[in-house]
Design a protein around this nucleic acid. Sequence first.
DNA 1: CTTACGGCCTGGGTGC
DNA 2: TGCACCCAGGCCGTAA
Length: 296
Amino acid sequence: MPELPEVETVVRGLEAALRGRRIESVRLGKTDFIEDPFVLEQKLPGSRIAGVRRYGKFVIFELERASGDLTGEKAKDARLYFLIHLGMTGQLTAGRPEQPVAQHTHARFGLDDGAELRYTDIRRFGRMLVVPESRRETVLGSLGIDPLEATPEELAGLLAGRRARVKALLLDQHFLRGLGNIYTDESLWRARIHPGRPAASLRREEALRLHRAIQGVLREAIRLRGSSVSDYVDAEGNPGEFQRRHRVYQREGKKCFHCGARIGRIVVAGRSSYFCPRCQRAPRRRPKRRASQRQR
DNA sequence: CTTACGGCCTGGGTGC
DNA sequence: TGCACCCAGGCCGTAA
């Protein structure tokens, strides 16, 4: 499941392999995950890949249109953004066109050095769209801050005053951009915070610990080239290694690396949430507002 | 506005 | 061999 570290790994691989290349051809298979397939076929051939970047879980190809076909007013849209969200099972790989084509490969882009960029996606939960500069904000503008760029104060400030459960917020791409189920669970375990805690109930010290945990987990995961749980592979088609370092994710019933208690699973924000019931204490049951009810 | 929740998309894995 | 069912992440609509 591509989250921030996986997308970052893919982007670094693509950047190294594709920067400066010109797209020569586009071949599409199933297109129901593409906003407008015609625009892809129309705009991409002839474009040069000026750079490949990550924004949240999006891969962004910065494209420069050949200068010849641009005039006057349109020049400001000379820069196009080719946005790809890998969804759950999306893979973006760069290789030789003669390599066998994997099942569920729905887009192939021929490049001017003879290489081929391929998009493979079993579930097609991914997304693909081309937007001009002027529409970039519409698509990406509502996303939250990048967890690797956020300062401890920033995160603590955003969590304060929110009644939603902390895990729901961490998963919300409009709150933080880039975390998914694996890295929220791993971060919360590391910070020893129960996923069901209301965000506002976190003490300052806990919020700072969470910030530290998130950045630590993400940095290590990037260093190990992401987690390959089901389908994820990097730009060269190789799996990552961080799944070996998972401490709670999909470890229900196994021993906690901290305390030895059995890892539990509950549903929070509609997602399976793995946690250690001893290290990550459950929030107090909703206090019934009876004056007579006393604590402990 | 905020929050919670159910449903939808697709197809691999599982259990019968 | 078949088949119903569950689940995954993101998103959207609805209700409180």
